[in-house]
Nucleic acid binder design. Sequence first.
DNA 1: AGCGGAGTTGCCCATTGCGCAACACTAAGC
DNA 2: GCTTAGTGTTGCGCAATGGGCAACTCCGCT
Lengths: 256, 256
Amino acid sequence: MGNSAAAETSSVQSVDRALQILNILADKGECGVTEIALALGIHKSTASRLLSELLSYELVEQVAERGRYRLGLGLVRLAGHVTASLEPVSGSRTITRALAAAVGETVNISVLDGNQVLYVDQVTGPTIVAMRSWIGNRVEAHCTSTGKALTAWLDEPARIAARPKRWIQYMPNTIMNAADLESELAQVRERGWALAVEEMEPGLVAIAAPLRDPYGEVVATLAVSGPAYRITPDRYEDIANQVVEAARKLSGKVEF
Amino acid sequence: MGNSAAAETSSVQSVDRALQILNILADKGECGVTEIALALGIHKSTASRLLSELLSYELVEQVAERGRYRLGLGLVRLAGHVTASLEPVSGSRTITRALAAAVGETVNISVLDGNQVLYVDQVTGPTIVAMRSWIGNRVEAHCTSTGKALTAWLDEPARIAARPKRWIQYMPNTIMNAADLESELAQVRERGWALAVEEMEPGLVAIAAPLRDPYGEVVATLAVSGPAYRITPDRYEDIANQVVEAARKLSGKVEF
DNA sequence: AGCGGAGTTGCCCATTGCGCAACACTAAGC
DNA sequence: GCTTAGTGTTGCGCAATGGGCAACTCCGCT
């Protein structure tokens, strides 16, 4: 009880426990030592020592002296290295910047994480700021253009696994059943790009194209997003063509 | 040799080693098992088992089967929870969004990390996208408005520690010595806000104000950034006033 | 085909992680 | 102000686990 499936195959129990603590804190936000000990089925002195180790690397932090724990900024620093390593080879960032400049909207790159979209890179609208950004947050795959582009080319079992557990009506336009979603994904495959118009949030329009590895597998997506009053229907085709072209250029450069 | 200072006070050696592996991968990008074992002074079978554990939680990933390792997307997911927990209390995000809408430029929140600025939150220009973003990347503190706002109110030893190890001339406007930096920080304290005009990157202008905890300590900054052709000198005062006002509102809400 | 090196895994032993007990600290109730 | 209950921390000793060794598989190079 309280042990993950990973624990069943664990070869280093104490490391496994420490990493489970990180997941518990991710789920609950903040936790006390005793609470974590109970969740893991270990003694509170054990939990305290594991937390102390994580604390020394700043993967967790204490809300107050001798108080509850939460995830720490050390994770943000490490994650920054992940996004740095995701950056395509020299010159590729110019493709996403050029696209952002040409279209005048935000451009991002995402990967599929279970049944959700995980944002891993972003270039804001016409901007000169060279700061790399990436987004740890994620949204449901079925009601975003990136999610549709990520799942459209999966085989059927994988597409079914990527469907939401519950169909929530975020917006009047939100897709609410499997048949409509499959129909939508068929259109994505036919066109080569995905569209989402006010399905997740009022006024938000996004157009996405797949990024493929050398084997042709879809490993990420490239997307443009902006407000509906700027990305009007008459611009969809043109923006889509630009996204698809940029995605084609990037597909030979990005590896995940 | 190969052991961190933390290892000297470590109470869980194997967890300590696993976390050192993460730092090694952050530094080197990619590593083999044998390389990591040598760096840590442990047997390669030990390194392999520790990596296997990190792999099962996706904190690392293998570039190829039986190949080299690098940091994994599991870190991005965990870090996303950190930024979620950094989000100010209900309603506060409206302050940064309102500021972004009013000024028409990108707004971000940063903290000081050694002698660099670590970006922890960002709202892009007038946008409807509700996705939270944060930036694991960091830049030198002395040549950004956020860095100046973060360090201006430190005591002298801390300000000296926050100076760059080497004064690199990124731009003609870049501050290149301690005296000029101290003078600039004195102005920041006097005005209550910091300015950086093309010091880090061509065309980039940023204005930042400190975010204080209930004890008045500067714990983060709020900044607006954009291109020089839009953020012209005649707009500095007005933007600064809006940033200071938004920072004042946020200071009672943000805790780190 | 042979060699060298990297990564993996079974096994056994010594070291380390862990539970126990005791302590320090804090908040709540009277 | 005192008492009680609960939380988090730490010294200690023991047994369970982590880790080194050896052997294996796999792959690239000659």
